[in-house]
Each structure stands twice: as structure tokens, then as C-alpha cells.
Simulated assay, not measured.
Amino acid sequence: MGTGLDRRQFGLSAAGAAIALAAGRDARAQAGPITRPVTLVVPFAAGGSTDVLSRIVARRLSEKTGLSVVVENVGGAGGTIGAGRVARAEPDGSTILMATVATHALNPLMAKERPYDPVADFAPVSLLATVPNVLLVNPKVPVKSVQELIALLKAEPGKYSYASSGVGTPLHLSGELFKVLTGVKMEHVPYRGGGPAMTDLIGGQVPIMFDVLSGAAGFVRNGSVRALAVTTRTRVGSFPDLPTIAESGVPDYETYTWNAVFGPAKLPQPIVEFLSRELQAVIAEPAIRERLSDLSAVPVGSDPAGLAAQVKSELEKWAPVIAAAGLKQT
């Protein structure tokens, strides 16, 4: 009996080893051309919308491919420190970047000396999602639409100010584009983050604010602030009754934040194609799309060419706005 049990145990052990070996082979096959653990650099502090989205995507990418995908927050200088680190990384797929419109358009356009070239120093992989911004007012401001706000600002030029999460942020530029396209005058009041700005908007210290919809949603729903419109070209599923600024009489207006993955320049094409394919598959999953929608993000999942076109379009759009606002460092 002892011998039979030993044989059965040996057989089970051998079968287990075979399964483990096969699983290891499958994981290596799924991991494709990348042979090392992957660090996804998030160029902002932990806890923000980019960080949350990154962790959702990293976890699922790791599960799908068998790769170890770790998120590392490398904040500072509006995202340029983390982005610069990836630009200088070894192009082997082990270090990739979760970028935004700030890292790949706004900051490079405003910098006196670019810390990196947003086009030449990176390999585009995939545009994962767009995140709408929203135009808000304190409920005591006597307007309920974009056109009413424009009329008020033109009737009393210079009287009203708008808040954002800081100088040179996508939200600041959303306000500057609004001024350029409507001809209104508003003073910009920069804050050190969206939280303090929202506190002052609710308290009435500042009457108008541009914010990321994912951060403002709760305050809009509980009536602490009034949302006039979203900044994207089309309406947002989480607030279907909220119009866009474009449909509210400013037809050329469109701004949003986005999240996209880049590698360093000279990343081999097989690695680019592998990462792009796997990331597109992650974003296409219903459960992931639902989680992103809960964050008021709009899932995209583009190929590398689509992301390259996005960067080119953003650079062309924001260059004249930054010049008009006097934001270019001298």
C-alpha cells in the first residue's frame, strides 16, 4: 500500500509539475517579446485619476500576459520628471509611461528649454482613455447655461475670475481656450490642486472653475456646484443631460484630459505591437470599460498611429493658445 500511495503521490506531483511548467510556458508565450518585469511610470502623485486608471490597467495587463507590471509614481514638475525618466530608459519594454496631455503637449510647449521632445523621444503605444473636463459655477452665480455665462462676462468684463488646479494645467488651458474663442475676459486664479479650488468655488471665494469631471462629479450631483457644460465634443454617458460647450454656442471648443502609454524612442516594433495589442484588448473588456466609465473616463484603446496623431493634434491646437495666454517661459 505504501508503494502504491508513493506512486500515486509521485504521479500527482509529476502532473502538478507538468501543469506548472506548461503555465510557465504559456505565461512566457503571452508575455511575447518582453523578458523583464515592467514598470509603468505614473508621472504624478498617487491617488489622482491618472494613478487610479493606471492601476486598473496594470493589474489586468499583468493578469493577461503573465508579466509583472508594477506602477511607480514619479511626480514633480507637472509630470515632466517621470516622463523624462522614461524618455531616457532602456528601450526593452521594461519601462513605460502613462502619459497625459500635460506631459506630451502643454508642458513641452510652455517650457523655455524642453526636458524632452514629446515626439522624437517616445514610441507611441496606445491612447487608452479620454477624461472630460467640466465648466462649473457657484450656484449663486446668476447663470444656468454657457450662453448666459458669456453674456454676463461680456456685460461685466474683468469682474469675474475662474479657478483651476494650477498654472499650465489642462484645466487652466481649458479656461484660456474659452476666453480666446468667446472673447470674454476672466482673471485666472491658480490653486495648488483641484481640491482647494473646489473648496473655494463651493464657498463662493471664486465664482467659476474648470475641473476634471471625475473629480467634480460628486459635487455636481449633490448640488454644491452647478455644471454648465462638459468640454468634450460629445456628451458624456455619466451626465447625459449635460450639454457640451461646443453645442452651447462655441462650436470649435474641445478640451479634455487623456491617458496614453508610451515607451522610450527606439522601442523595438515587436514590443510596441505586443503592448499595443494587449492594451487594446484590456480596454475592450466590458468590466474594464465599466470601471473606466465609473471614473467618467471614455475608453478608447487606439493603435500606435492613432496616439501619434493625437499628440500632433494637441501640439498644433495648444501652441497658439499658450502664446496668446503668455504662458511660454522666457
Rank of each mutant, 00 (worst) to 15 (best):
R226G: 13
R88Y: 05
S68A: 13
A260W: 04
A319L: 09
P207C: 01
S145Y: 02
S54A: 15
F10K: 09
S49D: 01
T199I: 15
L128F: 05
T39S: 05
Y253L: 09
D121E: 07
Q30C: 10
S293D: 07
A323Y: 02
R277S: 10
S54T: 09
M1V: 07
A324V: 05
S68V: 14
P268L: 01
A120K: 08
A229Q: 10
S248Y: 01
G306R: 11
T95G: 05
V184P: 14
V236E: 13
E273L: 09
E316W: 03
V71Q: 03
G2M: 03
L40R: 09
E290I: 08
S248D: 01
D92A: 04
Y162E: 15
A17Y: 09
L181T: 07
V212L: 04
R55W: 00
L128I: 06
D200R: 12
Q30I: 03
T80I: 02
A217F: 08
I288P: 01
G82H: 00
R8E: 06
T257A: 06
F219Q: 09
H104A: 12
P190F: 01
V146S: 08
H104Q: 15
V146M: 09
E254F: 13
P299A: 09
Y116W: 10
K328A: 14
D211L: 06
E148T: 10
S68P: 04
P286N: 09
L109Y: 00
V74D: 14
A216S: 09
A120T: 02
G237R: 14
V261S: 05
P142N: 03
T255K: 02
A89W: 08
R7H: 08
S13I: 00
L177K: 11
L67P: 10
V131N: 04
F262T: 00
A309Y: 13
A305E: 14
D303Y: 07
A281Y: 11
A305H: 11
